[in-house]
Every structure is written in C-alpha cells, then in structure tokens.
C-alpha cells in the first residue's frame, strides 16, 4: 500500500498519470482504513498512552493530581497483595495455558476425522461454555462447589471419598484450582474449533506419503501434522495466555479474590484498587506491568513456536 513502484508492470516507467493512479488508490485505501483506525486510536492507543502517563501520577478520586515519578511502581513491589496476585496469576497461566492447548489438541485429533454430524456435536459440546454468559457459568459452578448444598460435596460424600463437606471456593488450598478448572472449561471451546479446522487443512497427500513410507501414527503427527498446525498453535497459545492473564470476571463473581487473597489475580487487584479504592494511578501502573508481562511472554511464544512454523 502506498508503494507506487509495486503497482507498475515490470519494465514500465513511472509517469505522471501512473503516479496519480497510485495516489488515488493510496488515498482510498487510507479512507477505507480510517473508520477502524478511529476506533483503534480512540479506544486502544489513546487509553494506553493515558494509562502509561497517569501511572506516574497520584491519580485518585478526591486527591490532587500530582506527579510522583516511579512511586506507584515502587509501592507495587512492596505490596504483599500485589505480589500474591502476581504469583496467583502466574500459577493460573502456567497451568491453564498448557492444559488448555494440550487438551484441545487431543480432542481435536480425536474428532476431526469423524463424520460431520458427530464432529459438529462435539464442537458444540465444547463450545457451549464459551457462548454461555460468564455470570451463568459462575452461578452453576458456584452451586456445584457450594459447601452445604453443592453437587461435588454430595457425590464425594456419597461415594465415601469425603466424610465432611469442603468449602471448595472458601479454602485457600482449593479455591485457585477451582477457578482454574472453570477457566479451563470456558477456554477450550475456541482452540478445539481452531484445531479441528487446522487439522482438516493438513495436506492428506503428505500423510499418505508418510504412511506409505512406514511412518507410525506418532511420527505422522509429529513430523507432518504438528508443523502444519504450528501457526494455529501459536495463535492459541497467545490468545489463551492473554485470556488467562486477564481472568477477572470469574474471580469477581465467585471469590472476590478470597479467601485471604488466595485467588486474587493482577486483573482483579487492578479492579479493586481502581474501582473500590479509587486509586487510578496505582491501578494503571499495575496495568502497565501486566501489559509488559503479556508482551514479553507473547514475544517468547512467537520466538519458540515461530521457528517451527517455517520448517
């Protein structure tokens, strides 16, 4: 776009007429981009810049707006709740991302060659939690985890595995794992759909050739399918990582970060500081750190998996 030479035929000399065509095409291309750009700049770029700028200020409701340099950042790393939230977030990401990716791949491998009706059925089953509202999902899980009337305690007590009710969401040892489980069920839908599509697009002639040459099913998968679905894997890894880092609604609805901050994540803590305590500058500083962490991890994922995509 905008490169006049690329629009000319080989050996054709640029003329005033051609330049005018190129200019008109460039203008129309930019005009087509403009609506999206307006939204992108207005709702992404400007808020990001404001977030970064205000993170250096004491920006709190009812207080003077004053420059405090890196104080918000320094406070953050002395704040035990932030550090606990950071640790919880890393646990959540470290567990959720590999399990979601591996499980999605396994399910997709199992269903992508099925008859279209069966395949659609499984895709619907796994995609259902994605299209179900977060509040509805949270209400159902909260009931299942309920200490007194929950399904989980009922089953475990009935089968003799437990002999007393457990407050699954109220115990620091189990609460975060319950959140991860729910996050897992709501995260696998999209990767499964994507993997089924990606596996369906693997060149069958390569698979046939491999099988003719005596490759085992694992070798076919590892040497033929896996490299071809690597771009999808990269996308799934990045999206799942970002979604896991941004886990907030489930925590707000189920535990409010408790018990004793054992399920607090950075996103939840940002919400708490900004909306409950009105410390917008501090919240924004945490947002900047979160963005940097996500960017670094995404870059790492591109680096690690990106080379595989070009093999």
């Amino acid at each position: 776009m905008g490169n006049g030479k690329s629009t000319l035929m080989a050996g054709q000399k640029p003329t005033v007429f051609n330049n005018a065509i190129v200019r008109q095409q460039t203008i129309s291309a930019y005009l087509f981009l403009l609506p999206a750009m307006v939204f992108f700049v207005g709702f992404v770029v400007i808020p990001m810049v404001m977030c970064l700028a205000t993170s250096f200020f004491n920006y709190s409701m009812g207080k003077p707006f004053e420059f405090i340099g890196l104080n918000n950042y320094l406070e953050m790393f002395k704040d035990q709740v932030f550090l606990k939230s950071l640790r919880n977030t890393f646990v959540l990401v470290a567990v959720a991302v590999p399990t979601v990716t591996a499980f999605s791949l396994w399910v997709s491998c199992a269903i992508y060659q099925m008859h279209a009706i069966k395949r659609s059925f499984f895709r619907c089953v796994f995609y259902l939690p994605v299209v179900t509202g977060t509040v509805a999902v949270a209400v159902v899980w909260k009931w299942m985890f309920n200490k007194y009337t929950g399904l989980l305690n009922y089953i475990l007590n009935a089968t003799g595995i437990l002999n007393e009710n457990v407050s699954w969401l109220g115990d620091a040892k189990t609460a975060l794992w319950c959140i991860i489980l729910i996050l897992f069920t709501t995260s696998i839908g999209q990767p499964i759909v994507l993997y089924v599509a990606a596996l369906g697009n693997v060149d069958p002639s390569l698979i046939d050739a491999g099988q003719v040459d005596g490759a085992t099913p694992f070798q076919v998968f590892w040497h033929i399918k896996w490299p071809q679905i690597m771009p999808t894997t990269l996308y799934i890894l990045v999206i799942t990582t970002i979604n896991s880092f941004q886990c907030y609604a489930l925590i707000q609805l189920l535990t409010s970060g408790g018990p004793d901050n054992s399920t607090s994540t950075i996103m939840y803590y940002i919400y708490y500081e900004a909306f409950k305590l009105y410390r917008y500058g501090y919240g924004n500083a945490m947002g900047v750190i979160l963005a940097i962490i996500i960017a670094l991890l995404s870059a790492l994922q591109f680096k690690v998996t990106g080379s595989g995509a070009t093999d």
């Binding site: 129309s28 005009l31 087509f32 403009l34 609506p35 307006v38």
Partner: peptide
C-alpha cells in the same frame, strides 16, 4: 469503481463521525 470506492469510504467515515458526534 474508484468513485464508488471513494463514496463508500466517505460514507463509512461519515457514519463513524456521526456516531462520534
């Protein structure tokens, strides 16, 4: 085609700005 493209683009921008307005 170019005229049509420009008209469409102008329309989209106008719509966006109308929304902003």
């Amino acid at each position: 085609k170019k005229t049509l493209s420009l008209l469409l683009a102008t329309g989209m921008v106008a719509g966006t700005l109308a929304g902003c307005g």
